[in-house]
Design a protein around this nucleic acid. Structure first.
Lengths: 246, 246
DNA sequence: CGGCTGATTGAAGGTTTTCAACTTTTGTGG
DNA sequence: CCACAAAAGTTGAAAACCTTCAATCAGCCG
């Protein structure tokens, strides 16, 4: 560690410039010089154990988080207890953007496994992104990407039937694992059937049944959370060529 | 018009500092000085006739738009023709944020009535928001608010039943009309039952039936697109105290 | 190893969709 | 300005899809 870098808790200081997640994370597309400046910004890392909250709805908003290791879900709770999972996040993805609007977090972020995040103080981010054009631009892209992703989820929830939703979900997971250097065809889901169901607007039994049908039809091999995709094209066809639903 | 302001098409130059939508729009919360700078940014206005596109999915992204008058819907189309309405936008709201991520628009924006928008060149916005802190902050808030709104829609689509969705929709519209100085209890919807249905993940017949039931139960008086809310609290109760749906 | 959580599967029930007929409103052109 | 066609909205009955309820099975952790 360079002497110029201020020492933080137990040498946990992060350096984006050294991180292998650069291409997936906030720094994507930034120049060498810009990257160096980014290292000023990113504070200590924080470890979150499985099932623990990174933040809760109502918490004051102070930072956004880049997932360094592990994975999360975000959800919104209705007063009567109903839960809606709004997303699953993997390494390199940014959490906490919901808090900017009211300066309070509006959803819960919960680790699906033991995880680690880089803490990015939001005040500092605004400050630095006024100076570093690449950072500003990239940050805007990250927010916009989240909006586009949300529209995709609305499409799922509003216009697709159960099996289409699950197929789209699996293809999306596959693609994101691929981007992280993992197998596109074989992966391990960190979330339960109930969480998948909540995300897709389905009951867990419906998710389970859809998995079984996919297995029967030879699209995938399912063993609990372990998924092997056998017919990628078949899943894609499923999404587009089904009557309708609602 | 001041001589220092560059003259654009037919004197259509907008001045945020003069606009009565300030409190609802991008400039909200900015200081007098900051507002003056904002006037540099906002280009000509553009009129969009009913049913016309402000932009289409795939169009190159160059600007975001502030709705000066009228209203819009945004939607995403699936290859097989299915449409998902992702939102309805009213005066003061910002359109086009979806385009930042890929520099191509990812959805369609269509005027629900003859409308007018202020064109905000995105490159200029980034430039100016590096100089004007209040603008930067406000722009981030606008994007974050969109993300939070989207989560709310996911909740609707994923966890609520037909009547709950429509109740939530009506209450949301009422609140937004109120914010614009219109009656909270009586308003005119600019979209069809089919568009409402698409937004809520329901078929138009289901929307129509839900309207009829609300009328029978005395929650609202419905006459085609004209809505009168008779029992606001009743609608609110509907949202929280229903068994479940899916 | 036992108890727990998570997952699977079947049968019955419910909500929403589909199909269809009909009414009302809107828009256009004579 | 009326007439008429097209679009939008309403309503009923049947069907489809998903949920609910229930029982069973599998895997995991202490």
């Amino acid at each position: 560690m360079k002497a110029t870098v201020p020492v933080t808790v137990a040498g946990l200081k992060t350096a984006c410039s050294q991180c292998n997640l650069v291409e997936l994370c906030l720094p994507f597309g930034m120049s060498e010089n810009e990257l160096d400046r980014l290292d000023e910004l990113v504070g200590a890392r924080r470890k979150i154990k499985r099932q623990q909250n990174l933040y809760r709805a109502g918490d004051p908003f102070e930072a956004i988080y880049a997932i360094r290791a592990g994975s999360f879900k975000t959800d919104v709770l209705l007063e009567d207890g109903r839960e809606q999972v709004t997303g699953f996040q993997m390494t390199g993805e940014i959490l906490g953007l919901d808090g900017i609007s009211t300066e309070l977090h509006s959803c819960n972020a919960i680790a699906l496994e033991d995880s680690e995040v880089c803490v990015i103080a939001y005040a500092k981010l605004e400050e630095l992104s006024r100076e570093v054009e690449g950072l500003q631009h990239q940050f805007h892209k990250v927010m916009s990407r989240e909006i586009v992703r949300d529209h995709g989820v609305m499409m799922l929830l509003g216009s697709m039937r159960a099996e289409e939703r699950l197929a789209a979900f699996l293809l999306n997971m596959s693609q994101r694992f691929t981007a992280r250097g993992f197998s596109a065809a074989e992966f391990h889901l960190r979330m339960t059937r109930e969480e998948i169901g909540s995300y897709l607007g389905l009951k867990l039994e419906t998710v389970s049944r859809a998995f079984s049908r996919f297995q029967d039809e030879g699209f995938v091999a399912v063993q609990q959370k372990h998924i092997r995709i056998l017919d990628n094209a078949g899943l894609k066809r499923l999404i587009q060529h089904q009557p309708c639903g609602r």
